[in-house]
Design a binder for these strands. Structure first.
Lengths: 352, 352
DNA sequence: ATAGATTTCGGCAACGTTGCCGACAACGAT
DNA sequence: ATCGTTGTCGGCAACGTTGCCGAAATCTAT
């Protein structure tokens, strides 16, 4: 007895099958997709042979022919960010179920790299794009051009204002409002806001929530308490300057509401490095999905975004756009609720 | 005066250029690559027109023709892991400089998904693969088959033992030795080890380092102090059971050396949840690149891996394999030094 | 002036696949 | 017997690009 080796060593094509079975390539092709035009017996033969030889259609040839790839491109600022990696997991969960692959790309908060990633994915004929804007992107022509060519794009998290398509965000306004209100209710009244580049949607919305909470509690808005980091925390020096300016402010804030993983962690580091206690000297609430929030010293109060669900929803939107016939679509902007988790970093100190 | 619109709206191909300029596609093709066979004047004309129309060669057509894609595939267990995301950044830094794109894929510690990812990338004709094995992978036939078909593969971090190719790892043995030795020197003597699936290279090497340190200091090895989590921390219950078994051990360990982000953070959570103090009741050292390590409560002692450099090195290896003519290569296994950072979680308590 | 060399370009095929059209046989209906 | 129908299949073209071969025109050398 000898052992049959059923695993392929060479890559087999439809041509090889045709040759081996004395058929034409078109017949094999149709047999494999089960066309009614082909004799049942022939179909069986072809399918068995294909199975045995472990035939897999060449997706590149299909992409070239059909001008699509059954994959969707994702462009995020950083994968080393809990929010984004969770969102990506949500995207994968939906995409795979609907027969799409997910191609991940980073823009590293750079407009240049966002451009390059976008071009790359478009050239590889992804069927759609899921995008969270880089901190540098105010020009969106590259997206608009692709969309006008028929490439569906759905934005999530960092979405552009004047852009007509589906968008998925967290309710940044409400999240920021709750965080600020919580700080106020804990007795803090000089509340600073450390945030991302001013032109980003998330920045604006969170800022508005922050301001509204202050107004509702009749706390004057102090502009020098609001610090933008135009590189979103990618440049350590920038964050350092911002935080130090807050800490060394003539009237030092007694609380900081920080946006994003990096800003929040940097903020905590610097505050402690400067010898201040959290929350006794400065309380902190972060707009972050850090998985280690509960392990920090002190444990970090945080506004959580439903990252996984946002990824899922954005993907469902996108795939609908891809597969829906060219009906006129009413584009939606979906806001998902955030979740404020209160921990040690924002608790009212005993002596206050 | 009217505004000339220089941006393309339609995707332009070499055929379009040929038609517009009354040339053949082959001439245009050669003109664009600057072939000596083409008249300087013609070349100029073609190039100018291509530039103006924003021509970009279709990478899919090229992939089909040349059977390669100028991109390399990366398969990691999780991108939501500081070590891997840092490594990926290292990969990108090298790859882009050498004209390759990086396609990221996750296996979520599952053999099934590793298979799917591998097939996908291979079918998309990536020029090479950078792989860190899933916690479930002991069968490596899918990689061997691809390699035998000529696809270069470089493993990093979690590398297979019996597999002939380049490999890049941290010096897990030395890192574990140092961590264990440090704990011993701090006065801990019942040192447990919480680690990844037993069949992974990193598990074995770290375990050996841990054992060697114990031996060198004449501390008996207690097998019940060694806990494997065969899903690498992906399943909360598994980690919980392992940690609880340690904590509720008749002779409770006074220190835990944990491997990986998830195992370390889960371990800290559970230990504290059980009402034990770190490091007073149980000291902890993690084999992890957690960026928040210094912010944890207590700050976490950790063995750091040079993730970025590992990514770079692995990519250099891979691209060399891709581009090197079929010379007989001496495959290397490179070990990079780890870095033990000592913080609060492993300091000797005062009363000991 | 003629043969050969050089310059400059076009045609064809191929990568793997599918859509479209046409071919041919067998069949039933008139 | 003739015609249209149905069932099966093959051939060709196309997606975008490049390699190979050949062809025409011009130039060089004798």
């Amino acid at each position: 007895m000898y052992k049959t080796n059923s695993t392929t060593v060479e890559i087999i094509t439809i041509k090889d099958i045709a040759k081996a079975l004395n058929l034409s390539t078109s017949t094999v092709s149709r047999a494999l997709r089960g066309s009614y035009e082909i004799n049942v017996e022939t179909k069986r033969m072809v399918m068995e042979y294909a199975e045995r030889m472990n035939y897999r259609p060449n997706p590149i040839a299909l992409s070239l022919k059909e001008n699509r790839s059954r994959s969707i491109g994702v462009i995020v600022p950083e994968i080393a960010n809990n929010f984004f990696s969770q969102a990506i997991n949500g995207m994968e969960s939906i995409a795979y179920n609907r027969g799409y692959h997910v191609v991940i790309s980073q823009n590293h908060e750079s407009y240049e790299r966002e451009l390059v990633s976008t071009q790359y994915l478009a050239q590889r004929r992804v069927d759609g794009l899921l995008v969270s804007l880089s901190g540098e992107s105010n020009d969106l022509e590259h997206f608009k051009e692709l969309q006008s060519k028929g490439l569906p794009i759905v934005f999530f998290d960092r979405v552009p204002q004047n852009y007509i398509t589906h968008k998925v965000t967290a309710d940044n306004f409400a999240g920021a409002y709750q965080a600020t209100e919580h700080l106020i209710q804990q007795g803090y009244c000089r509340i600073a806001h450390l945030t991302s580049p001013s032109w980003l949607s998330i920045t604006y919305e969170r800022l508005e929530g922050y301001k509204k909470a202050l107004q509702d509690y009749e706390i004057p808005i102090e502009e020098s308490y609001i610090k933008y980091c135009s590189h979103g925390g990618m440049i350590a020096e920038e964050v350092e300057n911002a935080v130090l300016e807050l800490i060394r402010h003539p009237v030092r804030p007694d609380a900081i509401f920080a946006a994003g993983d990096r800003l929040t962690t940097s903020c905590m580091s610097l505050v402690r490095q400067e010898g201040l206690r959290i929350p006794d000297d400065v309380a902190i609430v972060g707009f972050t999905n850090l998985v280690t929030a509960h392990l920090l010293n002190p444990s970090l109060s945080a506004v959580l975004q439903p990252a996984f669900e946002m990824g899922q929803l954005a993907t469902e939107f996108l795939i609908d756009l891809i597969e829906r016939p060219k009906t006129t679509i009413r584009f939606e902007t979906k806001r998902l609720e955030t979740n404020l988790v209160i921990r040690g970093s924002s608790m009212r100190p005993a002596n206050k």
